Simulated scan of single mutants.
Amino acid sequence: MAKRKNARVTVLLECKDCIRNSEKEGSTGISRYITEKNGHNTPNPLELRKFCPYCYKYTIHGEIKK
């Protein structure tokens, strides 16, 4: 049987509001999540709404480079 090419890629998602606040005010931290995406189907950077414990609300988390 032929071997499959691994299309799953591990990505880091980082809160965009925490990044903005850390530059202005010195935030306590930056919320990050680890997830996987299919690199063939979604070549663009991933953005999801996730809960940020530092902002204490649901915010947009964008993909960052490792």
Rank of each mutant, 00 (worst) to 15 (best):
K3Q: 13
Y54W: 09
F51K: 02
Y58T: 15
K16P: 02
K50L: 15
H61V: 11
N6G: 06
T10Q: 10
T42D: 12
R20G: 06
N38C: 13
V9F: 00
H61N: 12
K57M: 06
L12N: 11
C55A: 12
E63K: 07
R20H: 12
I30K: 04
K50N: 06
T59S: 08
T35P: 03
L12A: 11
H40P: 02
C18K: 01
K57N: 10
P53T: 09
T10H: 02
K3A: 14
Y56E: 13
H40S: 11
K16Q: 15
D17R: 13
C52W: 03
C55D: 07
C52I: 04
K57S: 13
I64E: 07
E23C: 09
I60W: 11
N41D: 13
T35G: 10
A7F: 09
R49K: 13
L12D: 07
N41V: 10
P43L: 05
I19Y: 03
C15G: 01
Y56R: 13
C18P: 00
E63H: 06
I64K: 15
G62I: 11
I64S: 10
E23I: 12
T42Q: 14
I30R: 07
S27P: 00
E14D: 00
L13Q: 01
E14M: 05
N21F: 06
L12H: 09
M1Y: 11
E14G: 01
T10D: 03
